[in-house]
Nucleic acid binder design. Structure first.
Lengths: 211, 211
DNA sequence: AAATATAGACCGACAGTCAGTCGGTTGGTA
DNA sequence: TACCAACCGACTGACTGTCGGTCTATATTT
């Protein structure tokens, strides 16, 4: 009853199982036993591939990070796409959950679990901020925006959005959500000194999202 | 060897011990055993006063919330203090750790622990935002600021500041810290359309803080 | 082609820790 | 003396991580 597999294959198998369980029940309330029973391996096998339960979480986050940001990075660097459109596309690349393989991450930003959420948010801030900043700087050159602090503006926008819109820390009704989104766009507009057309473009796009 | 105390007294005793241990080692890595050994009570006693370990954490947060915000609220409502000065004082009331009794909270915003941090941040957002919004609205009436979204501005400022300045999620050198602070003041200034004098006043104050 | 060696993958019993429970006890007080 | 809030500590069950040992696929030798 023993099946031997390539380390990589086993690792992925474990990560798949962990992903599903963590997103269902949260990290704390998922036991390592559940993970290994789900794929029919022994305790020692799990700890042969990962040094701790938290290590599994870290690997899981890295796996998502890789997939999502490789895609987002491609878009961000594609100068053939107009600035405003590119911003929208980059953000969408990270939010949307239709990544081919099947069910993927909403839970990347909405884990029932605090530590996982914290770690995820930290990587989003670290990786997304420079991407958007690049685009904004391009926009500045083109006279679309005007600010001495593009990086910090984006940092602030990302932190705010990921706390308010993508986590369950503050619970909002759909109505409130919409209001926050309007105010958010407006405020970013002020920080970047966006001209009228650009602002209303973004407004249209983002107010549609998530009913 | 049995000492009977008023429930309130015992509760506080337990909270004091938990406070010290949580802030030293973090919530997860503090065992309930350590707490009860520290004050010399039995396991059952602890669970007579609190229904779970997390319940202790919640009570601890509430205790801080009460002390800190009662003070902050008083300041916020004192219309004899000029608007700018009042903003500064309210913020200071929450940050500074000289609350009479001895050593208090830095760890309110800087716990090594994700869940505690998340809960703390949630209460800060919920309670501080309306306080500051009130002051800002007064400033708007007086023509100091101008924005259709004072609440959302403050929410954004608070979320950003508590993530960047008061948590160890993003690690900053003192130099970087200073830069962020400058940019932060500048950005808030734009969102609120602060006039020149007000902006430079805030700049002076907040750039001094925390070396 | 058969025998042997090697190492990477796997196993599962076990140790140790911890949160929470429960039946029973004690001391203050009415 | 009766009551009850406060207290006790042994116990349970669940969980993470460890360790010595085993298996199997592949490489190496004969």
């Amino acid at each position: 009853m023993r099946t031997v597999k390539d380390a990589k294959e086993r690792r992925d198998e474990i990560l798949d199982a962990a992903d599903e369980l963590f997103s269902q029940k949260g990290f704390d309330k998922t036991s390592t036993n559940e993970i290994l029973e789900k794929i029919g391996i022994a305790r020692g096998t799990l700890y042969y591939h990962f040094k701790s339960k938290e290590d599994i979480m870290d690997a899981l986050i890295k796996r998502y990070e890789k997939v999502l940001f490789e895609n987002a990075e491609k878009i961000a660097k594609d100068k053939s796409i107009p600035v405003y459109e590119r911003i929208v596309k980059v953000v969408k690349a990270l939010n949307i959950s239709e990544q081919g393989n099947g069910q993927i991450i909403d839970h990347m930003h909405k884990p029932q679990n605090a530590l996982m959420h914290q770690k995820t948010q930290a990587t989003i801030i670290k990786r997304l901020t420079p991407l958007l900043t690049g685009i904004i700087e391009e926009g500045i050159e083109k006279g679309l925006f005007q600010t001495p602090f593009p990086y910090e503006c984006m940092e602030m926008a990302i932190i705010y959005a990921s706390t308010i819109f993508d986590s369950d820390m503050i619970v909002l009704s759909n109505e409130q959500r919409k209001e926050r989104m309007q105010a958010f766009i407006y405020n970013i507009g002020r920080m970047l000194m966006i001209e009228e057309e650009g602002a209303s473009y973004l407004k249209q796009i983002f107010e549609r999202k998530e009913v």
